[in-house]
Design a binder for these strands. Structure first.
Length: 188
DNA sequence: CAGTGGATGCTCT
DNA sequence: GAGCATCCACTGT
């Protein structure tokens, strides 16, 4: 399955399907190990209630980035999914860094390598994504997406950091990874 | 380890 | 003016 086919389908298939893909921004990035799904009928989603203001990109074609400012400080990046007008997207929460580690370290400052991309705000900082990338299509030469080279075992959990629809298990984490935003003995 | 609080900007009421 | 799809530095065990 191509990247375009994956993200053009239901966000609830695309979110787990994106685990194990490698995302590179100008050659810097890694394997996607943690994501969350959001969609228009979901009270936790920015697209809830229809296209307005910052969320309009979520209603555009699949395969473009929705980047927003979180808590006034961080950027968070989503991949828009589904048919245009559906307001669905996958929040990128963590990568396993594989390419451009030195570039990430210089962008992230003096943190442990474990924390380079382990969290939505950290990930965007490490990859150099900002509001300027909102609406950008995930196509070369700036972006590349490489399919998984092995089958990922995926865990499903409630989403993190939200106050509404907290019961929905729409967070997906690669089992056994040590690069998720909630590390510990259990990968989830 | 766990828990708390501050920084900061945009959307919504 | 409140709330937020966060992170970091700090505190106390």
């Amino acid at each position: 399955m191509t990247f375009h086919e994956l993200v053009a389908g239901s966000v609830h298939d695309a979110a787990p399907g994106l685990i194990g893909w490698t995302l590179l921004v100008d050659g810097v990035g890694g394997r996607i190990v943690e994501v969350e799904a959001y969609e228009e009928t979901d009270p936790a989603s920015h697209s809830f209630g229809g296209p307005r203001g910052r969320n309009v990109v979520m209603f555009g074609p699949a395969g473009q980035l929705y980047v927003y400012r979180s808590y006034g400080i961080h950027w968070c990046a989503n991949i828009v999914c589904g048919a245009p007008g559906h307001g669905a997207a996958v929040l990128l929460r963590a990568l396993e860094p594989t390419h451009g580690l030195d570039e990430m370290r210089s962008r992230r400052g003096p943190v442990a390598d474990r924390l380079l991309c382990s969290g939505p705000g950290r990930l965007t900082q490490a990859l150099g994504l900002t509001g300027a990338d909102n609406g950008a299509r995930l196509v070369p030469p700036r972006f590349s997406l490489v399919p998984p080279d092995r089958v990922a075992h995926i865990l499903r959990t409630p989403r993190i950091g939200i106050t509404r629809a907290t019961e929905a298990e729409w967070r997906y984490v690669e089992a056994g990874t040590s690069w998720s935003s909630r590390p510990g003995r259990r990968a989830a």
